[in-house]
Amino acid sequence: MAADPSPASTSLSFPRSTFAKLTPSPFLHAHLKQSPPIRPSGRTLTQFREPQITTGSLTYSHGSAVVRLGDTTVVCSVQGEILKASDIPSPPGESADNEDLLETLGLLVPNVELSTGCSSAHLPGNPPSTLAQSLSWRVRTLLYGSEVVNPEDLQIMFTAPKIDEENDAPVPEVKAYWTLYLDIMFISLDGNPFDAAWLAVMAALRTTTLPKASWDADSEAVVCSPALDDYSRLTLQATPVTATFAVFSTATSLKQRSEAESWVIADPDTSEEDVCREAVTVIADGSNEVLGIEKAGGRVVGKKSVQECVELTLGRWKEVNAMLP
């Protein structure tokens, strides 16, 4: 007896998530080559993730903020500690520039912590990764280079009482400084850690208040007032905003750059960062001034692409500044 004909074979297909894990680069390429280009997340090439900012969550610190960019979540805590001028081995002279005091004395100390289980690559208990150390250095460099914090806000002054009417009035002198420790902890990480960390830093500094500190000449110590009414808000001299862009290219060792396709992607997530070999970060402030441009890897981005990134960053500044406290 002849066997029954076999039923029509069904086509083999995979869900989107499986396709994205097995072949991440072709998966992203399949989305970008559409007209108009669309990313797997549904965002356009120039679309940033909308930040969600919450401040004042950590009551034990002098300032705090929680920032979320998509699935990237960062917590920043600002804690002030007092550094007595007498404890400085080589204190700055009277002619020292105030703008150089912050970096010379190390009054701003950021530290990025990724070993929190924020991703599979950063498990709890691991030593500080290269990425964490790089982020700490970049945040520190931008804090000092952009002169965000007013140095006078961190100085604790003392004026000796006038004893003799014939003598000149005593000159105020710096007896101590506030040192701000910025602990930046990632709760979850889904791409673009620098922009998220910097936004958390700015939001935390914007809400930082320090108690009124005065020098007690009798005990030769700094005394802080416990009254909340005596707390003063930190004065920020600038509000820089960073915007990171990744470059996806089909160029290979067998294909010339002139024959390859390339796209510049704003605010990349982890799946996009993993398949992009070039990145550009633009730093700008509210006066339409570009404070810096950082570029890593690749040779695809040219002057035209950089100019477009700058224009997008200036627009991004307006959006982010309106959300900051």
Rank of each mutant, 00 (worst) to 15 (best):
A213L: 01
N288I: 11
T244I: 14
L234H: 05
A196F: 09
Q237W: 03
D285G: 13
D285N: 14
L228H: 09
A246N: 07
L228D: 12
V201S: 03
E289H: 15
S214R: 04
Q256G: 09
L199P: 07
Q237K: 14
S219Q: 11
L234M: 04
A213W: 00
V247W: 00
L199Q: 08
T209F: 08
T270P: 01
K212W: 02
A266W: 04
R206K: 09
A196S: 10
T208L: 13
Q256F: 10
A217Y: 01
T242P: 07
A284N: 04
S225D: 15
S271Q: 11
L199N: 09
T244A: 06
D216P: 00
V280R: 10
D267N: 02
A243N: 13
D285L: 06
G286Y: 00
V223E: 00
A204T: 02
S219I: 05
N288R: 08
T244E: 12
E278M: 06
R233K: 15
T244N: 10
L210F: 06
A200R: 12
V241G: 01
T209H: 11
A246D: 08
E289L: 13
A217C: 02
F248G: 01
A196P: 12
A227Q: 10
V241K: 00
S287A: 14
C224G: 08
F248Y: 14
L234R: 07
T270S: 15
M202Q: 12
A227W: 07
R206Q: 12
D274E: 15
V280H: 11
S219M: 05
Y231F: 15
V247I: 09
V222I: 12
A227C: 08
M202E: 08
A251Y: 02
W198P: 01
T242E: 06
T244G: 09
E278Q: 09
S232Q: 15
T242G: 14
V201W: 14
W215C: 00
V222A: 02
C224Y: 01
I283P: 06
V247A: 10
P268C: 08
W263F: 14
A227P: 02
D274K: 12
V241Q: 03
A196Q: 07
T242M: 10
D218C: 01
A213E: 02
T208N: 14
T239Q: 11
T252N: 04
A203C: 04
A266K: 04
T252K: 03
V280W: 06
A284Q: 08
S287C: 13
A251W: 04
A227N: 15
A246M: 08
A213T: 04
T239N: 09
V290N: 09
A204L: 05
L199E: 08
A284V: 15
M202Y: 00
A197C: 07
T252Y: 09
A251C: 11
S232N: 12
E261A: 13
A238P: 00
A284D: 11
W215R: 00
D218G: 01
L234N: 05
Q256Y: 11
R257L: 13
D216F: 03
T244P: 11
L210I: 01
A238F: 05
Y231I: 07
D216W: 05
C276Y: 12
A260S: 15
C224A: 12
D229W: 02
T250K: 04
V241W: 00
R277Y: 15
A246I: 10
R257C: 06
S253I: 09
L291D: 09
S258N: 08
A197I: 03
D285K: 03
D269K: 09
K212T: 04
S287R: 13
D230G: 03
I265Y: 07
